[in-house]
């Protein structure tokens, strides 16, 4: 394809990224570095600030059960409540990723079963890329950037909950060093979604053709946007290998928690995605 077409594709994907993803990298980095006119995020670093943070966001994402309102109950139930809210936000994010995928030219013309397969295998990888800009070595933004939760607090939760976010921090810190911007990210997310090697695909050729065009667009975008960053295109693509391992470990952990946590129920959409995944 002509480079003008590749630039138009980059602009289109960037626009739909802005349309469907509420917290961009630019905004997240501004919040994290304090360079924004908005209020600084509320910091959750212990049980007391967690309760205050929950009240601040009106408990929408972290519902308290009436019979567990004692302080002792809060201590015991914090992990379950936190991951209930994590699941609700994940389900919303999957819906956003789906809309973004549908906006990739040619995606909705693929076999519907293949669209399902691409999303099933792609969404968690995409979500890990999307949370990277929200993270730094000390913690992560949550709740659309209103709250900053410290890494130490997440590590202080009981097992296995404390093991959930740490691998994402390790990945994100390295991924953020590539310094991709939101337009680079939009193209990379489309490349991930259009992976022709997902298990069970019925018609691989049209998917690979679409991915090839987006890959060309990403390569050109990185050359223009990062002229001094050598081999950036190759470095970005290498992240896809790390992502697959990260998702495999994540799904194993969730499935283990489903067995061991009696009070834990998995959101139906996450169940659909994780069933028979790897």
């Amino acid at each position: 394809p002509e480079s003008a077409d590749l630039r138009a594709l980059a602009r289109h994907l960037y626009e739909s990224y802005l349309k469907y993803f509420p917290l961009t990298k630019a905004k997240a980095r501004a919040i994290l570095s304090g360079k924004t006119s908005d209020n600084a995020p509320f910091v959750i670093h212990d049980m007391k600030s967690l309760v205050e943070g929950e009240q601040m966001i009106n408990c929408r994402y972290m519902p308290l059960h009436e019979h567990r309102r004692s302080d002792l109950g809060i201590m015991h139930e914090v992990e379950l409540r936190f991951f209930h809210s994590y699941q609700s936000r994940s389900a919303e994010a999957i819906s956003e990723v789906t809309e973004f995928a549908k906006s990739i030219p040619g995606f909705i013309n693929l076999d519907l079963n293949d669209q399902v397969t691409l999303l099933k295998y792609g969404v968690i990888e995409v979500m890990i890329i999307m949370i990277s800009p929200l993270m730094n070595k000390d913690g992560t933004l949550i709740s659309y950037g209103q709250i900053f939760m410290t890494r130490e607090f997440l590590k202080s939760l009981r097992k296995p909950f404390c093991e959930m976010m740490e691998p994402k921090f390790e990945f994100s810190i390295k991924f953020n060093m590539l310094e991709l911007d939101d337009c680079d990210m939009a193209l990379f997310l489309a490349v991930i979604i259009l992976s022709g090697d997902r298990p069970g695909l019925l018609d691989v050729k049209p998917i690979e053709d679409l991915q090839e065009t987006v890959l060309h667009s990403l390569e050109l975008q990185l050359k223009i946007n990062h002229p001094d960053s050598l081999q950036l295109f190759a470095k970005v693509l290498q992240k896809m290998t790390d992502l697959r391992q990260l998702v495999t470990d994540h799904v194993q952990l969730i499935q283990m928690m489903k067995e061991t946590e009696a009070d834990w129920s998995l959101h139906p959409l996450l169940q659909e995605i994780m069933r028979d995944l790897y």
Partner: peptide, 20 residues
């Protein structure tokens, strides 16, 4: 298809993200 009911619904919904 039954196994991925919600994903199918999300894909076939023509407007904005559906309420989950």
């Amino acid at each position: 298809k039954e196994k991925h009911k919600i994903l199918h619904r999300l894909l076939q919904n023509s407007s904005s993200p559906v309420d989950l």
